[in-house]
Amino acid sequence: MTEVTIWGCRGSLAAPGEEFTGYGGNTSCVEVVAADGTRLILDAGTGIRGLGQMLNGTVRQYNLLLTHLHMDHLQGMGFFSPFFDSHAQVDLWGPASTTLSLRTRLARYLSPPLFPVTMRDLPCKLTLHEVPAAVFEIGPFRIITDLVGHVGPTVGYRIETAGSVIAYIPDHEPALGTVDFPNDTQWLSGYELAENADLLIHDAQFSRQEYQNCIGWGHSAIDDAFKFAEICNVKHLIPFHHDPNHTDDTITQMVNETTHSQVPEFEVTAAREGAVFKL
């Protein structure tokens, strides 16, 4: 069995406060653990701090897969305790840009004035791997990466095991500029990553109304996330990357209304910090 745990599902900016505790205020971080204990950590938003604390000292090797380097997916990195453990080996995957290596791009955050410790001073053994790359394997996981429609170099991950497929595309605007969304799947960003997934964790930041003022910002209206899930024939959609202005009530209402209007054939569960999905 593979277990997927949400450690942070807030988009753009952490959202502390009572009205956000239901879904949680930490930014993107998802843990995937295979039956044999192999662990993947998807993104290093503020949610990674708690995960690092839980694991610290118990694990020697970490696999951290970043979709992109926007702050909400990176900000927890400096607070991920295994980075400061000299016995830890951290393998980190993430996208380079067309002109800068992954190392240079990461160092822009992990260096003063944004952060007091530089990357080269981290005590852990850190190995960087650039994506998108050919299909690669980590323990029982077969991992496929592809660039997707967001702002700047951004990948999504398709994580396959013998029994299940998980697609993780937290920041994604596949409807941008399309004429016939989502029907022409050959021309649909993210399609092959999400096709027939058992679990699709996907951007659903905006309401339809909000999206009209945020076209091109790289995020999806929630009904587009549903349409994308449907054409990809997924079994279970996890609307993710909740807007930092959306309270628990707003998120619940958005998901309920969209479920009501679209009547999806797949299961829908809004991402919630602490939620565990077993596949």
């Binding site: 660039l147 997707v148 500029g177 021309w187 649909l188 960003s189 092959e192």
Partner: peptide
């Protein structure tokens, strides 16, 4: 047929608006 790379998808999307 397989899905196109994002750069081509974006090129086509841009071109259909120009």
């Amino acid at each position: 047929m397989s899905q196109k790379p994002i750069e081509l998808i974006l090129a086509r999307q841009l071109s259909s608006h120009l």
